[in-house]
Design a protein around this nucleic acid. Structure first.
Lengths: 140, 140
DNA sequence: GTCCCTGCAAACGTTTTGCACACAG
DNA sequence: CTGTGTGCAAAACGTTTGCAGGGAC
Protein backbone atom coordinates (compact mmCIF):
# COMPACT_ATOMS: atom_id res chain seq x y z
CA UNK A 1 0.00 0.00 0.00
CA UNK A 2 1.09 3.57 -0.65
CA UNK A 3 2.67 5.43 2.26
CA UNK A 4 0.26 7.53 4.30
CA UNK A 5 1.68 10.87 3.14
CA UNK A 6 1.24 9.86 -0.51
CA UNK A 7 -2.36 8.75 -0.02
CA UNK A 8 -3.14 11.99 1.72
CA UNK A 9 -1.67 14.13 -1.05
CA UNK A 10 -3.64 12.15 -3.61
CA UNK A 11 -6.78 12.98 -1.68
CA UNK A 12 -6.02 16.68 -2.12
CA UNK A 13 -4.97 17.05 1.48
CA UNK A 14 -3.14 20.32 2.10
CA UNK A 15 0.31 19.06 2.98
CA UNK A 16 2.08 21.30 5.47
CA UNK A 17 5.33 20.61 7.28
CA UNK A 18 3.40 20.04 10.52
CA UNK A 19 1.02 17.53 9.01
CA UNK A 20 3.88 15.70 7.39
CA UNK A 21 5.80 15.14 10.61
CA UNK A 22 2.62 14.07 12.40
CA UNK A 23 1.76 11.58 9.66
CA UNK A 24 5.31 10.29 9.70
CA UNK A 25 5.17 9.75 13.47
CA UNK A 26 2.14 7.53 12.88
CA UNK A 27 3.83 4.90 10.75
CA UNK A 28 4.53 1.24 11.45
CA UNK A 29 3.04 -1.80 13.12
CA UNK A 30 2.40 -1.99 16.87
CA UNK A 31 2.18 1.81 16.99
CA UNK A 32 -0.39 2.96 19.54
CA UNK A 33 0.69 6.41 20.56
CA UNK A 34 -1.21 8.85 22.74
CA UNK A 35 -1.52 12.44 21.53
CA UNK A 36 1.26 13.75 23.75
CA UNK A 37 3.60 11.04 22.49
CA UNK A 38 2.82 11.98 18.91
CA UNK A 39 3.47 15.59 19.88
CA UNK A 40 6.85 14.65 21.36
CA UNK A 41 7.88 12.72 18.25
CA UNK A 42 6.65 15.38 15.85
CA UNK A 43 8.41 18.06 17.84
CA UNK A 44 11.73 16.27 17.49
CA UNK A 45 11.41 16.57 13.71
CA UNK A 46 9.89 20.06 13.72
CA UNK A 47 10.19 21.92 17.03
CA UNK A 48 7.54 24.54 16.20
CA UNK A 49 4.58 22.13 16.04
CA UNK A 50 1.85 22.84 18.53
CA UNK A 51 -0.12 20.33 20.54
CA UNK A 52 -3.38 21.78 19.20
CA UNK A 53 -2.29 21.01 15.67
CA UNK A 54 -1.43 17.47 16.70
CA UNK A 55 -4.95 17.01 18.08
CA UNK A 56 -6.57 18.65 15.06
CA UNK A 57 -4.60 16.51 12.66
CA UNK A 58 -5.15 13.25 14.54
CA UNK A 59 -8.90 13.88 14.59
CA UNK A 60 -8.86 14.64 10.90
CA UNK A 61 -7.00 11.44 10.12
CA UNK A 62 -9.43 9.43 12.22
CA UNK A 63 -12.30 11.05 10.33
CA UNK A 64 -10.68 10.14 7.02
CA UNK A 65 -10.31 6.54 8.16
CA UNK A 66 -6.51 6.71 8.04
CA UNK A 67 -6.16 6.18 11.80
CA UNK A 68 -7.98 4.02 14.34
CA UNK A 69 -8.81 5.33 17.77
CA UNK A 70 -8.19 2.70 20.42
CA UNK A 71 -9.23 2.82 24.06
CA UNK A 72 -6.44 2.33 26.58
CA UNK A 73 -6.87 1.67 30.29
CA UNK A 74 -4.68 4.66 31.16
CA UNK A 75 -7.56 6.87 30.03
CA UNK A 76 -5.77 8.54 27.12
CA UNK A 77 -6.90 7.97 23.56
CA UNK A 78 -4.39 6.07 21.42
CA UNK A 79 -4.03 6.21 17.66
CA UNK A 80 -3.30 3.15 15.52
CA UNK A 81 -2.11 3.62 11.91
CA UNK A 82 -2.67 -0.04 11.01
CA UNK A 83 -5.96 0.31 9.13
CA UNK A 84 -5.14 -2.09 6.27
CA UNK A 85 -5.69 -5.37 8.03
CA UNK A 86 -8.29 -6.25 10.63
CA UNK A 87 -6.50 -6.97 13.85
CA UNK A 88 -6.92 -7.09 17.57
CA UNK A 89 -4.80 -6.07 20.53
CA UNK A 90 -2.58 -7.71 23.08
CA UNK A 91 -2.21 -5.49 26.13
CA UNK A 92 0.20 -5.73 29.03
CA UNK A 93 -1.89 -4.81 32.06
CA UNK A 94 1.24 -3.84 33.98
CA UNK A 95 3.09 -1.49 31.61
CA UNK A 96 0.37 -0.73 29.09
CA UNK A 97 2.38 -1.93 26.09
CA UNK A 98 0.11 -2.86 23.21
CA UNK A 99 0.78 -5.13 20.23
CA UNK A 100 -1.28 -5.88 17.14
CA UNK A 101 -2.37 -9.52 16.92
CA UNK A 102 -4.33 -11.56 14.41
CA UNK A 103 -6.92 -14.15 15.28
CA UNK A 104 -10.27 -15.48 14.08
CA UNK A 105 -13.25 -13.46 15.21
CA UNK A 106 -15.55 -15.18 17.70
CA UNK A 107 -19.18 -15.60 16.68
CA UNK A 108 -21.92 -14.12 18.83
CA UNK A 109 -24.61 -16.80 19.40
CA UNK A 110 -27.97 -15.95 17.81
CA UNK A 111 -29.72 -15.93 21.17
CA UNK A 112 -27.30 -13.21 22.33
CA UNK A 113 -27.77 -10.76 19.50
CA UNK A 114 -30.73 -8.88 21.02
CA UNK A 115 -31.84 -7.85 17.53
CA UNK A 116 -28.62 -5.89 16.93
CA UNK A 117 -27.04 -5.74 13.48
CA UNK A 118 -23.42 -6.82 13.98
CA UNK A 119 -20.74 -4.59 12.45
CA UNK A 120 -17.38 -5.68 13.82
CA UNK A 121 -15.60 -7.31 16.72
CA UNK A 122 -12.97 -5.73 18.91
CA UNK A 123 -10.85 -8.01 21.08
CA UNK A 124 -8.32 -7.06 23.72
CA UNK A 125 -6.19 -9.88 25.13
CA UNK A 126 -5.20 -8.73 28.59
CA UNK A 127 -1.85 -10.24 29.50
CA UNK A 128 1.56 -9.70 31.09
CA UNK A 129 4.52 -9.01 28.87
CA UNK A 130 7.87 -10.81 29.33
CA UNK A 131 9.54 -7.73 30.83
CA UNK A 132 6.86 -7.25 33.48
CA UNK A 133 6.72 -11.00 34.24
CA UNK A 134 10.47 -10.92 34.95
CA UNK A 135 10.11 -8.01 37.39
CA UNK A 136 7.36 -9.83 39.32
CA UNK A 137 9.68 -12.76 40.11
CA UNK A 138 10.89 -11.43 43.50
CA UNK A 139 7.76 -12.26 45.58
CA UNK A 140 6.84 -15.99 45.43
CA UNK B 1 -25.69 -14.34 45.53
CA UNK B 2 -26.24 -11.88 48.34
CA UNK B 3 -27.25 -8.36 47.36
CA UNK B 4 -24.39 -5.90 47.05
CA UNK B 5 -25.32 -3.90 50.13
CA UNK B 6 -25.36 -7.05 52.27
CA UNK B 7 -21.98 -8.22 51.00
CA UNK B 8 -20.53 -4.82 51.73
CA UNK B 9 -21.86 -4.72 55.28
CA UNK B 10 -20.47 -8.20 55.89
CA UNK B 11 -17.09 -6.95 54.81
CA UNK B 12 -17.25 -4.33 57.55
CA UNK B 13 -17.92 -1.53 55.10
CA UNK B 14 -19.13 1.61 56.83
CA UNK B 15 -22.65 1.86 55.46
CA UNK B 16 -23.77 5.46 55.08
CA UNK B 17 -26.93 6.71 53.38
CA UNK B 18 -24.86 7.99 50.44
CA UNK B 19 -23.06 4.71 49.91
CA UNK B 20 -26.32 2.84 50.10
CA UNK B 21 -28.04 4.84 47.34
CA UNK B 22 -24.92 4.60 45.14
CA UNK B 23 -24.72 0.83 45.60
CA UNK B 24 -28.43 0.55 44.88
CA UNK B 25 -28.05 2.50 41.66
CA UNK B 26 -25.47 -0.07 40.55
CA UNK B 27 -27.75 -3.09 40.56
CA UNK B 28 -28.95 -5.27 37.71
CA UNK B 29 -27.87 -6.73 34.39
CA UNK B 30 -26.96 -4.57 31.41
CA UNK B 31 -26.10 -1.70 33.76
CA UNK B 32 -23.17 0.34 32.44
CA UNK B 33 -23.59 3.77 33.95
CA UNK B 34 -21.14 6.65 33.77
CA UNK B 35 -20.33 8.50 36.98
CA UNK B 36 -22.65 11.40 36.24
CA UNK B 37 -25.52 9.00 35.57
CA UNK B 38 -24.90 7.26 38.87
CA UNK B 39 -24.86 10.71 40.48
CA UNK B 40 -28.21 11.56 38.89
CA UNK B 41 -29.81 8.31 40.07
CA UNK B 42 -28.36 8.54 43.55
CA UNK B 43 -29.47 12.14 43.83
CA UNK B 44 -33.07 11.16 43.10
CA UNK B 45 -33.04 8.93 46.15
CA UNK B 46 -30.94 11.25 48.32
CA UNK B 47 -30.64 14.83 47.00
CA UNK B 48 -27.67 15.80 49.18
CA UNK B 49 -25.17 13.32 47.64
CA UNK B 50 -22.14 14.96 46.07
CA UNK B 51 -20.44 13.99 42.83
CA UNK B 52 -17.13 13.61 44.67
CA UNK B 53 -18.65 10.98 46.92
CA UNK B 54 -19.99 9.17 43.88
CA UNK B 55 -16.49 9.06 42.39
CA UNK B 56 -14.89 8.06 45.68
CA UNK B 57 -17.40 5.27 46.21
CA UNK B 58 -17.23 3.95 42.67
CA UNK B 59 -13.45 3.77 42.88
CA UNK B 60 -13.66 1.97 46.18
CA UNK B 61 -16.10 -0.58 44.78
CA UNK B 62 -13.83 -1.16 41.78
CA UNK B 63 -10.91 -1.68 44.16
CA UNK B 64 -12.95 -4.21 46.15
CA UNK B 65 -13.80 -6.09 42.97
CA UNK B 66 -17.52 -5.37 43.31
CA UNK B 67 -17.63 -3.27 40.14
CA UNK B 68 -15.99 -3.57 36.75
CA UNK B 69 -14.67 -0.52 34.92
CA UNK B 70 -15.48 -0.65 31.24
CA UNK B 71 -14.19 1.62 28.49
CA UNK B 72 -16.81 3.37 26.39
CA UNK B 73 -16.21 5.21 23.11
CA UNK B 74 -17.77 8.39 24.52
CA UNK B 75 -14.67 8.76 26.67
CA UNK B 76 -16.38 8.45 30.03
CA UNK B 77 -15.64 5.52 32.33
CA UNK B 78 -18.58 3.17 32.83
CA UNK B 79 -19.22 0.92 35.79
CA UNK B 80 -20.63 -2.60 35.48
CA UNK B 81 -22.01 -4.37 38.57
CA UNK B 82 -22.13 -7.78 36.87
CA UNK B 83 -18.98 -9.30 38.36
CA UNK B 84 -20.38 -12.80 38.98
CA UNK B 85 -20.23 -14.21 35.50
CA UNK B 86 -17.60 -13.62 32.82
CA UNK B 87 -19.24 -11.76 30.00
CA UNK B 88 -18.57 -9.49 27.06
CA UNK B 89 -20.29 -6.46 25.60
CA UNK B 90 -22.57 -5.66 22.72
CA UNK B 91 -22.33 -1.95 21.89
CA UNK B 92 -24.55 0.16 19.66
CA UNK B 93 -22.13 2.46 17.84
CA UNK B 94 -24.92 4.99 17.21
CA UNK B 95 -26.49 5.49 20.62
CA UNK B 96 -23.85 3.93 22.87
CA UNK B 97 -26.25 1.47 24.50
CA UNK B 98 -24.39 -1.51 25.95
CA UNK B 99 -25.64 -5.00 26.77
CA UNK B 100 -23.96 -7.93 28.50
CA UNK B 101 -23.50 -10.95 26.25
CA UNK B 102 -22.09 -14.43 26.71
CA UNK B 103 -19.89 -16.24 24.22
CA UNK B 104 -16.91 -18.55 24.05
CA UNK B 105 -13.55 -16.83 24.32
CA UNK B 106 -11.42 -16.86 21.18
CA UNK B 107 -7.99 -18.44 21.42
CA UNK B 108 -4.91 -16.41 20.59
CA UNK B 109 -2.68 -18.49 18.25
CA UNK B 110 0.67 -19.46 19.77
CA UNK B 111 2.60 -17.57 17.09
CA UNK B 112 0.77 -14.39 18.13
CA UNK B 113 1.47 -14.49 21.86
CA UNK B 114 4.79 -12.60 21.72
CA UNK B 115 5.83 -14.28 24.97
CA UNK B 116 2.98 -12.69 26.90
CA UNK B 117 1.24 -14.56 29.72
CA UNK B 118 -2.46 -14.41 28.90
CA UNK B 119 -4.81 -13.31 31.67
CA UNK B 120 -8.22 -12.64 30.17
CA UNK B 121 -10.07 -11.69 27.03
CA UNK B 122 -12.28 -8.65 26.56
CA UNK B 123 -14.62 -8.59 23.57
CA UNK B 124 -16.79 -5.74 22.32
CA UNK B 125 -19.23 -6.55 19.56
CA UNK B 126 -19.79 -3.28 17.72
CA UNK B 127 -23.27 -3.21 16.26
CA UNK B 128 -26.42 -1.19 15.61
CA UNK B 129 -29.37 -1.61 17.93
CA UNK B 130 -32.94 -2.08 16.61
CA UNK B 131 -33.96 1.48 17.56
CA UNK B 132 -31.03 3.08 15.72
CA UNK B 133 -31.50 0.79 12.69
CA UNK B 134 -35.12 1.96 12.44
CA UNK B 135 -34.11 5.63 12.45
CA UNK B 136 -31.59 5.06 9.66
CA UNK B 137 -34.30 3.82 7.29
CA UNK B 138 -34.98 7.22 5.63
CA UNK B 139 -31.85 7.45 3.42
CA UNK B 140 -31.58 4.46 1.02
C1' DG C 1 -15.66 9.58 71.55
C1' DT C 2 -13.16 8.12 67.58
C1' DC C 3 -12.24 7.72 63.08
C1' DC C 4 -13.87 7.55 58.67
C1' DC C 5 -16.85 9.60 55.37
C1' DT C 6 -18.81 13.68 53.32
C1' DG C 7 -19.36 18.06 50.76
C1' DC C 8 -17.29 21.86 48.77
C1' DA C 9 -14.17 23.94 45.82
C1' DA C 10 -9.98 23.97 43.80
C1' DA C 11 -6.62 21.31 41.09
C1' DC C 12 -5.57 18.11 37.62
C1' DG C 13 -4.68 15.99 32.93
C1' DT C 14 -6.56 15.57 28.53
C1' DT C 15 -8.90 17.39 24.68
C1' DT C 16 -11.31 21.19 22.26
C1' DT C 17 -12.04 25.85 20.65
C1' DG C 18 -11.72 31.05 19.22
C1' DC C 19 -8.98 34.02 17.13
C1' DA C 20 -5.47 36.56 14.42
C1' DC C 21 -1.65 35.51 11.55
C1' DA C 22 0.89 32.64 8.01
C1' DC C 23 1.52 30.06 4.11
C1' DA C 24 0.21 26.18 0.44
C1' DG C 25 -2.16 26.03 -3.55
C1' DC D 1 -4.56 36.21 -3.81
C1' DT D 2 -7.62 33.22 -1.22
C1' DG D 3 -8.84 29.93 1.81
C1' DT D 4 -7.25 26.73 4.92
C1' DG D 5 -3.97 25.44 8.51
C1' DT D 6 -1.37 27.16 12.43
C1' DG D 7 0.00 28.67 17.15
C1' DC D 8 -1.37 30.47 21.33
C1' DA D 9 -4.15 30.83 25.21
C1' DA D 10 -8.28 30.01 27.29
C1' DA D 11 -12.04 26.99 28.03
C1' DA D 12 -14.26 22.61 28.44
C1' DC D 13 -14.59 18.15 30.16
C1' DG D 14 -14.21 14.16 33.32
C1' DT D 15 -11.91 12.99 37.33
C1' DT D 16 -9.16 13.56 41.63
C1' DT D 17 -7.79 15.77 45.90
C1' DG D 18 -7.26 18.82 50.38
C1' DC D 19 -9.59 20.17 53.99
C1' DA D 20 -12.88 21.24 57.72
C1' DG D 21 -17.04 19.54 59.57
C1' DG D 22 -20.33 15.58 60.55
C1' DG D 23 -22.17 11.10 61.44
C1' DA D 24 -21.56 5.64 61.86
C1' DC D 25 -19.99 2.58 64.87
Amino acid sequence: MEPLVVRLRDRGWRLTAQRRVIAEAMTGEHVHLAADEVYERARRALPEVSLATVYNTLNELVGMGELLEVAHPDGRKRYDPNVDERHHHLLCVDCGRMLDVHTDDPRLPDDQQHGFELLEVEITFRARCPDCARVGMDAP
